[in-house]
Design a protein around this nucleic acid. Sequence first.
DNA 1: ACAATTTTGGGTCATTCGACCTATGTAGAA
DNA 2: TTCTACATAGGTCGAATGACCCAAAATTGT
Lengths: 196, 196
Amino acid sequence: MTPLRVLLADDHTMLREGLRRSLAGHGIEIVGEANDGKAALDQAASLKPDVILMDVTMPILNGIDATRQIRRTVPGCAVVMLSMHGETEMRSQAAKAGAADYLVKDCSTDDIVAAIYKAAGMPPPETDSKVLTHREAEILQMIADGKGTSEAAAALFISLKTVKNHLASAYAKLDAADRTQAIVKAAKLGIINLDV
Amino acid sequence: MTPLRVLLADDHTMLREGLRRSLAGHGIEIVGEANDGKAALDQAASLKPDVILMDVTMPILNGIDATRQIRRTVPGCAVVMLSMHGETEMRSQAAKAGAADYLVKDCSTDDIVAAIYKAAGMPPPETDSKVLTHREAEILQMIADGKGTSEAAAALFISLKTVKNHLASAYAKLDAADRTQAIVKAAKLGIINLDV
DNA sequence: ACAATTTTGGGTCATTCGACCTATGTAGAA
DNA sequence: TTCTACATAGGTCGAATGACCCAAAATTGT
């Protein structure tokens, strides 16, 4: 019922925003973001997230060392490590530091979601909040970002009619009377994201 | 810059929601709500809010006793007491327990805001995010809550035209092209609230 | 008392929106 | 293969929306 509370720890803002977007709609709530290992440590203590998605290479304090300390000081937080490459060496170090999992950054969103739930000791919510199709959610997100119907159509290289159809379908599924309600409801469900 | 983190402790859900609404748009973030004194104690420790708005009469553990314990265990949290009545007796007990202020529940939102900032040792943000007039924000909130234009008009006993005018005015101030963008922007600014 | 702001109300206009309908191609599942 | 779901695209139609004007109470501040 209550969404998994996740902390993002990565020094790349762009990647964090991408993750924030990608993880929306999977019952995952991003409760905080950290730029470096030290910040991750602090936020882990104060926010007590269920899971921390932590990059290996970060300034000030690297992800491995941060994980080791977090596992000691905040044992309730599971840590999923992210890395650019899949070096065996790193994997074992991460495991030794107490990481629940180790992912390479080019894996799919579903992989990340699965790893997060596995780390939290929960099964992924399957069809849970997957009320909307990818396309519907994508278009709804663009509307929430301030694009108009025709702008969304242009950006996606599809017809205005198609955008309207997807929106209409989304409204029906969300039981929303208009796009404003749809945005609000989708945001509440975590299907789209109003941040950034 | 960063909003004041406030915890609401009151056993009346309705009053909490009202406060949540009222305090939006004053640079105040409601980080949690508690139903009773014990929950307030727990959440004060875990959330470490800047200020706690605490009712005097609550089940399990009353507000005065909860305040006393919180002031001892989480000295960083200032406590503003709320009461139905302004008994002198209570006031002095609250002060003795370490409350920063004591408000009667029929005071205005501005009074509460002022008390919260005073308790946090900060000046209220004056004209800060007061981009919209009360009426504009009120109507925008109703739209966000799923009401249509005419429903809002009916609820406020004013003309449909007036509602449209307020909305148009709000759009202009928020630099929003339509109501959806206006809702999103207003929510980001904390002027309205998408929760509840 | 006066000025400024807010709230209220009106009108017109083109544009957009959402409801309702059908239809095609492409997947994937049974 | 057949069936289902999805994405794509079109049409029509009435209603709602937003842009652009305007003005008069009511409130507030000075």
